[in-house]
Every structure is written in C-alpha cells, then in structure tokens.
C-alpha cells in the first residue's frame, strides 16, 4: 500500500527498494555495452540515448497514470501519430509554432478525453475502448494524410526536438520538467493520491469518497495530452510527418512503464521507475544498433520486454504476499 503523504524519507526508501534492482540493470547494461562497443560511451551516442529515452518517457509518463488506476491506454501511439499530422498541417499552413503546439496538445487531450468517457460513461473495459480508439485514429490519420508526407517546419518549432540548451538536448529538459510535475502531482496532491487509491481498490476508494469516474477521466485525458506533447517533440526532431509515425511507439511505451515497475493490477508504480524503464529499453535497442543487429528484430525484443516487465511484477507481488 501507499505510504502516507509527507513521509519523504520512508517514501524515498520504498522507492529505492523497488527501483534498486532496475538501477543495477542500467549500470550492468552500461558496463556490457561500454566493453562491447567503441561507440557506446561517446558523448554523441549517450546524448542520443537520452534524447530517445526522453521522448519515450513523455509518452510513457501519461500512460503510467492510467496503469496506476489498473487501466490501459493502447491508443497512445496512434494518438501521437494523429496529433503529429494535425500539428504538422497547422504548422505548414500558418507558420506559427504557437498554433502548432496548441493543435498537437489539443488533439491529444481530445482523444484522451474521449477514451476517458468511453471507459467511464459507457463502461467499456479500458483495453477494449482504447484498442478501438487506436484503429479509429489509425483510419482517420490515413484518410487525412492520404499517403502524403508533410515536412519542413519553422526553425523556432524545431528547437523543441532538436535544439540544445547549455549543451544538452531540449527534450531532456522536458523529461525532467514533466518528471518533477508528475512527481509533485502524484505525491503531493490529494488528486494524485486518489489516483493510487482508485487503482489499489476502486470499491474502497469510492466508499471513502473518491470521485472515481472523474479521476479516471483525468488520467486518460492526461495520457492523451502527453501523447500530443510527445508528438510535437517527435515532429520537431524528424522534421516530417506521415500517417503511421506513431504506430511503432506503442509497444516501447508500454514496455517502459512495465519494465519501470508499474503494476498492471493498479496502485503500484512511480514516474521515476518509468523513467528508468524508458532508459533500460532505449539502452537495449541502442546496444542492438551498435552491435549491428538487424533492426527488424527490435519489435521482437520490445515485445519480450513487455512480457518480462509483467512477469517481474507478478513475481514481486507473489513474494510480497508470501511475506505478509
């Protein structure tokens, strides 16, 4: 169960107990790749890893909130694709980075809200609702783009994805900003604690006065909004948009959350864990690249990571049950 609010020392210790093994995994991968590849430890490659992990974290952070409520958002990849396409055409048409950013985030939020309403008002199981949404968005994006590519965005906008600040890529700052905001929300606000409560035991949460449906709508909306935001970072980095750009990001996002220690059964997980999960997955895929493994194997490894993440959680759970 969650520790009471305000007990910072204990919550830090608890977090470390959960994440210590995962940090060790990061260090192990570092050592192995450092020995196996000459390129791995170069500044360029490490910044590249961090930049990719940052993008993954942005998508996975919103998804973490959903998974904390024992839900799931399978539409994050398609949502990212759709938001990127809409933002790209607004950027092209107006040349205004502001309007482009507004469009991307608004599109992501709207999809997230729709997911939240499907899950709460229509009571469709989350994985079905968001899986249906995945294909609806997929269809809409393909119809909207009609096979076109939109490319070449204003330099001001491109800073979000490919710019540098004090020698570090901008997405890395975004990652830490949203990690901080998310941490404050989850640990220091009533709403955040209620998100954990909904996931740990929805019936108990409702009986103790938590507005369960509103918190559910909130997490799906936030997840959608983060997908929209990540779309902008991705768009600014790629400098082009196609209908299918979000599709390959769904499995990695889910893998990052699960490898990061969030439980599909709800109530357990942290954003710090998700950050480490994103880092582990990115390091593994980067290592495969450096060791010249055919990129076609990446979905297989990512799929396996999803399964490993869930198995680890189930194992932790069983051990905790045996102890108590």
């Amino acid at each position: 169960m969650r520790v009471a609010r305000g007990n910072l020392l204990e919550s830090t210790r608890e977090a470390f107990a959960r994440l210590g093994g995962r940090l060790a995994a990061v260090i192990l991968i570092f050592v192995v790749l450092g020995l196996a590849s000459d390129v791995f430890l170069t500044q360029n490659n490490l910044l590249n890893v961090l930049r990719q992990a940052a993008l993954l974290f942005l998508i996975a952070s919103g998804l973490t909130l959903v998974i904390l409520t024992a839900g799931l958002d399978l539409s994050v990849g398609a949502n990212l694709g759709m938001s990127a396409c809409l933002a790209a055409s607004v950027l092209k048409a107006t040349g205004s980075p502001f309007l482009g950013v507004l469009t991307g985030v608004a599109s992501g939020l709207a999809t997230g809200l729709a997911n939240g309403l499907l899950v709460t008002a229509l009571r469709i199981p989350p994985f079905i609702a968001t899986y249906g949404m995945l294909w609806v968005l997929h269809g809409l994006s393909y119809y909207y783009m009609a096979g076109d590519t939109i490319y070449g965005f204003p330099p001001g906008f491109r800073e979000i994805g490919s710019g540098y600040l004090f020698g570090l890529p901008v997405p890395i700052y975004l990652m830490f900003v949203f990690l901080a905001i998310g941490w404050l929300f989850l640990e220091r606000t009533t709403w955040g604690q209620e998100v954990y409560a909904v996931g740990a035991n929805p019936v108990a949460a409702r009986l103790s006065g938590v507005p369960v449906r509103r918190r559910l709508v909130l997490v799906y909306t936030v997840s959608g909004g983060m997908a929209g935001l990540a779309a902008l970072v991705y768009l600014a980095r790629l400098n082009s948009a196609e209908a299918d750009i979000g599709e390959p990001l769904l499995l990695p996002a889910i893998a990052a959350v699960l490898i990061g220690g969030a439980s599909l059964f709800g109530g357990v997980g942290t954003l710090g864990g998700t950050l480490i999960g994103a880092l582990i997955l990115t390091l593994v895929l980067n290592g495969m690249n450096l060791l010249e493994v055919n990129a076609n194997w990446q979905p297989l490894v990512t799929g396996a990571m999803v399964l490993i993440g869930v198995l680890l959680d189930m194992w932790t759970r069983r051990r905790a049950e045996e102890k108590s």
Partner: peptide, 16 residues
C-alpha cells in the same frame, strides 16, 4: 498474465 498484455507482447514478437 492479463490476456491483453500477454498477447500484446507476443504480437510484437510475431511482428518481429
């Protein structure tokens, strides 16, 4: 394992 996640994992593997 919850079925939708188990089969999502194997989906990725089959695709790969």
């Amino acid at each position: 394992m919850p079925p939708f996640v188990a089969t999502l994992g194997t989906l990725g593997m089959a695709q790969g």
